[in-house]
């Protein structure tokens, strides 16, 4: 949606709800979009994207690029997507309760595992690696690099995902950051967030272990 951390900051300030109307001030947002036509184009693409009925049949695209380095030392810029095996279905309107997307996912996992394919898209010559607002042209080489199988859900309550941070620049050997400034900004911001929240008292989880054991009912 934005190119770098400074633009993201400006975007957040522009989309801040007005204290009286509780909605973003259109004049501030308009001003931002006038200065940042790339964000306007990215928002239009986001709006044109087909929504699906839930988490289980959605595709997750990394808009940011990474560099893959092979054993010979050749560096290649890539973007990747997690593409579901489940066929996409259109949304069926809001479900029951605030957390229905979570409960639907827990229910689906109770019926059987869910799989996504890690599809890596290789950059063509001149494709922008440092600007996540610009899509790469269709028809770039794609590699199915592996399958992610989810077999069960776990609550953040006592779960293994709570006490860590998803720093996007902690990468295995052979992968590294590109000139995209967003992952580096996230790395810095997550370190600060992780420090602050790790020092806080633990609060109740929205999706509890009990809710998960009951299969999303």
């Amino acid at each position: 949606m934005v190119r770098n951390a400074a633009d993201f900051n400006a975007f957040l300030l522009a989309s801040r709800p007005d204290p009286r109307t509780h909605r973003p001030d259109p004049s501030r947002m308009g001003g931002f979009l006038a200065r940042h036509p790339e964000t306007g184009r990215a928002l239009a693409l986001l709006k044109a994207r087909a929504l699906t009925s839930g988490f289980a049949n959605d595709t997750y695209n990394s808009l940011d690029s990474l560099i893959f380095v092979n054993a010979e030392g050749t560096a290649t810029a890539v973007r990747w997507a997690m593409v579901p095996e489940e066929a996409a279905r259109p949304p069926e309107g809001p479900g029951v309760g605030r957390d229905y997307l979570f409960h639907d996912l827990i229910g689906a996992l109770a019926r059987g595992p869910l799989r996504w394919h890690l599809v890596v898209t290789v950059a063509g010559p001149g494709d922008p690696t440092g600007d996540a607002t610009v899509p790469w042209p269709a028809g770039r080489r794609q590699v199915d690099a592996g399958t992610l199988t989810l077999v069960r859900a776990e609550s953040e309550e006592g779960g293994p995902c709570t006490g860590i941070t998803y720093d996007p620049l902690i990468l295995p050997e052979g992968m590294g950051p590109s000139d995209d400034p967003i992952p580096a900004a996230r790395s810095a911001v997550y370190a600060r967030s992780f420090t602050l929240r790790s020092g806080e008292a633990v609060t109740a989880s929205a999706v509890t272990g009990t809710a998960i054991r009951s299969g999303g009912q």
């Binding site: 770098n4 951390a5 620049l169 950051p177 400034p181 580096a184 790395s187 810095a188 600060r192």
Partner: peptide, 14 residues
């Protein structure tokens, strides 16, 4: 310097 920036220099400095 590194805790004062969110630019790509952050990652290189750490």
């Amino acid at each position: 310097a590194m805790v004062a920036t969110v630019e790509p220099a952050y990652h290189r400095l750490v």
